[in-house]
Structure formats: structure tokens, C-alpha cells
Amino acid sequence: MPKSTSCSRSARLPLLLGVLLLAPAAWAARPINNTPCPPVMQISQTPLATPPGWSLMADPRRDANHHLQAVTFFSGDPQDMAALSPDIEKRTPKGYSSTWRFQQHGGQQQDYWIGCSYTDTNLIAVRKLADNISQCDMTQYLSDRKRPGGSVDIVCY
């Protein structure tokens, strides 16, 4: 009986070594940041000027939360509005998929930023991407009206 145990242990050793050698490659392929945009933002709206005779009220039929609608990637400070076009765009039966690839220039890492757009607001949430991110993939699902406007998934590597 002990002989078969040592035989099965020696048979498992190459398998264990193979798993340990492949583990770093599997870890490298994992997303660095899955959905880097907050899915919902709460934003207070304040009127700047209301014409005489008019008043404003919250519409109870509308969702007060602002849901992630789209993303934009910027090269450098987003205030400069240097938006990047996707490197790859595809239409799928469920929506659209886009891929942005970020490259170094002259041996130095360029600053890349993400801008997250939300429903029913003109505000964009912006944040610098980590220097080790080289690609972001976005899927924008179709809304019920067969137009973009459904949910958005983003994964960055």
C-alpha cells in the first residue's frame, strides 16, 4: 500500500510544478481594474436662473441617480480635451465593443485619463489611469430602443 502512495505522489509532482509555473502567466492576464468608473453618481442640480413666472421641481418619474452611460479616454489632462479614438470598434448583437491601447512615447509613460459620463448630466468624472494600464475594453449594451444607452462594462489591463 505505501508503494502506490509514493507512486501517486511522484505522478502528481509534474502536474503541481506545471501549475506553479503557469500561475504567474495567469495572474498577468487578470484585469488590473474591472469597471474603473463608478456605476452610479449622485449629483445635486441647482438652477442658476429661472425665468419669471417659472419654478422648478424634481420629476418623480425620473431616476434621481445618474447611471454610467459612456467613457472617454484622454491623452494628458482632460481639461485639454485630447480625447482618444478607440483602436478597435465592433458592433455586436448586444451592443458595441471598443478597445483603447495606451503606449509609451519616447521611453516615457504618457499620462492617460478616463472620463466617465453619466445620464442626464453634463458633468464627467475624471481620473488618471495607473501607469501600468496598457489597454481598456468597453462594452456598451443597447437600450430597449436598439440604440446605445444601456449599461456599460469596462475592463482595464
Rank of each mutant, 00 (worst) to 15 (best):
R12K: 09
M41F: 12
R62V: 07
S117F: 02
Q42L: 06
M81I: 02
R62T: 02
T35M: 09
R9I: 02
I43Q: 09
I133D: 08
L56F: 14
S10T: 05
E89W: 00
S98Q: 11
D59Q: 13
L20Q: 07
L20E: 06
A11H: 08
V40E: 14
T35H: 11
P47C: 05
T35L: 14
L123I: 10
D131S: 01
V155W: 15
Q104W: 05
E89D: 11
P38L: 05
V152C: 07
L22M: 07
Y118V: 03
W54C: 09
Y118E: 10
A23H: 09
C7W: 15
L15A: 01
R62D: 00
W27H: 13
R62K: 04
G53K: 02
A25T: 07
F74D: 01
W113D: 00
T99Q: 15
Y118K: 06
T99N: 14
G53W: 12
Q110L: 02
S85M: 15
F102V: 00
Q45G: 10
P60E: 08
A125G: 04
F74W: 13
P2C: 06
S151Q: 12
R91L: 05
I133K: 09
R101D: 15
N34W: 14
T72R: 02
I32K: 15
P36T: 08
Y96D: 08
Y141C: 03
V152E: 13
M57P: 12
S75T: 02
L13C: 00
Q103F: 08
D137K: 11
K3H: 10
T119C: 04
L84C: 00
G149L: 11
M138K: 10
K146F: 12
T35Y: 15
R145M: 01
G115W: 03
S134G: 04
A64K: 15
P31H: 10
S4C: 06
Q79T: 04
N132V: 11
K128D: 12
N122K: 10
L13E: 05
P36S: 06
L15I: 05
V126I: 12
Q110A: 00
R61S: 02
I32T: 13
V71M: 03
V40F: 07
N65H: 10
I43Y: 03
P86R: 11
G150V: 04
C7E: 08
L84T: 01
S98D: 08
I124W: 06
S44I: 00
Q79H: 03
A11F: 12
L17P: 11
P39Y: 05
W54T: 10
D131V: 01
D144H: 09
P2W: 14
P47V: 08
Q110W: 06
T99F: 08
R101P: 04
G106N: 14
N132C: 07
K3C: 00
A23Y: 07
T5A: 00
D59W: 08
S6H: 04
M57F: 14
A29G: 06
P52F: 00
T92W: 12
R30N: 06
K90E: 08
D87E: 14
R12Y: 04
W113E: 03
F102T: 00
A25C: 09
D77A: 07
A82H: 15
F74Y: 13
P86C: 09
I88A: 07
E89V: 01
L22T: 05
Q45K: 08
S10W: 12
P47T: 01
Y118Q: 04
M1H: 10
